[in-house]
Amino acid sequence: MNSRNTILKKLRATQTPFTDVAPIEQRRNMVPLAETTPDALTQRFIAEAEKIGCRVYAAEDAAAAFERVFALLNGDKQISAWDDAFLPMPEFSETLKTAGIEITASDNGQVRLGITGIDAGLASTGSLIFSSGHGKYRTVSLLPTVYVAIMTTNQIVADFETWVALQKERGLDQFRQSSNTVIISGPSKTADIAQELILGAHGPKEVHIILLP
């Protein structure tokens, strides 16, 4: 018998454990949110993201967002970024190209700054969530030392539980189509050296969030 069947057979041969455990009557969300109006969620998202070390910039419009991007670029001539279709800014690559900035292959590991969009923001924890795919490169939020997420306020949902419920509504196939979905909550960090908190362990040291209306 192969190991698979041996294991399953062994598990089935025994008396089922935990038959007496009462089911949870009402599943609760991990973070109780008092207010869930769009405004309240935006405020909460900003507050939580800042708490975990992100810098959040509210940009009135695309022009302001571009201004912010250029400020963060700080003279760099090369960045990595997602494809235009997945960024909430019109003609993103065109605008950068015009300014003489090259968007490189996503995974060369040399650039300092990476820019992505997101699928959703989680207000309860200030987290960013997105799946990977064509034009949504994984490495952009991973290899650079400075990571910039550009998003709109209507992408903010209450919490992870709400996001999960949305996936289920939509059918889980869509979630499963993507090879990888990640929730990012702040800059990469470690406390392995005597509990001293150091940012930028292996991933980005800085996380900037540009929030469009």
């Binding site: 990977s132 064509h134 490169y137 992870f160 979630f175 979905t181 990640v182 991933g203």
Partner: peptide
């Protein structure tokens, strides 16, 4: 474990890179 509400990276892996994906 660490007193965080979320770890910095919470990854959900649904397999190898899909056709057309640049990385993974």
């Amino acid at each position: 474990s660490t007193g965080q509400h979320m770890t910095v990276y919470t990854s959900m892996i649904n397999g190898p890179k899909r056709p057309g994906d640049a990385d993974g």
